[in-house]
């Protein structure tokens, strides 16, 4: 199975669209689940106070959580669809490394996290590292 790395090669845009679908869906899903978990609070403390059932209830009664799971499910089926057309050694690292960068951007603007120079450097280093590791 060869990969279309040039825009002139047939299949390039289809491959790019498949990767983009995974990246966008997983970024939306992760930001929404992170927002849900932040609104719930430390789940270890909730479990200590209310038990496992109480912790599960706290998570499943949060509407953001279900919206996040919906987007993560879309990302999962996009991944299944993609690995059926392209090798997983390309799809998994490409989507994982791009998602790191889009997550850092989304965390800064939507979750108002302090994405300082240290976190940007970490995201970029891990992103390049994942790319190298896949080759």
């Amino acid at each position: 199975m060869t990969l279309p790395f040039s825009a002139l090669q047939p299949g390039f845009w289809a491959a790019a669209a498949m990767i983009a679908a995974i990246v966008l869906c997983s970024t939306a899903g992760e930001v929404l689940t992170a927002a849900a978990m932040k609104s719930i609070g430390d789940i270890d403390e909730i479990r200590a106070r209310l038990g496992l059932k109480g912790a599960i209830r706290a998570v499943v009664t949060c509407p953001f959580f279900f919206l996040g799971v919906f987007f993560l499910a879309l990302a999962f089926f996009s991944l299944l669809f993609s690995v059926n057309h392209m090798p997983v050694s390309f799809v998994a690292p490409a989507s994982a490394s791009l998602t790191l960068v889009t997550n850092a951007i989304a965390a800064k603007f939507f979750l108002h996290e302090n994405v300082d120079r240290r976190r940007w450097s970490a995201a970029v280093l891990v992103c390049i590292g994942v790319y190298f590791l896949a080759h």
């Binding site: 992760e30 930001v31 992170a34 978990m37 932040k38 719930i40 609070g41 430390d42 789940i43 270890d44 998602t99 790191l100 997550n103 850092a104 989304a106 965390a107 800064k108 979750l111 996290e113 302090n114 994405v115 976190r119 970490a122 995201a123 280093l125 891990v126």
Partner: peptide, 10 residues
């Protein structure tokens, strides 16, 4: 629930 998304992902 106890860490930032930009901390957990990397």
């Amino acid at each position: 629930s106890w860490a930032d998304l930009s901390f957990v992902m990397p």
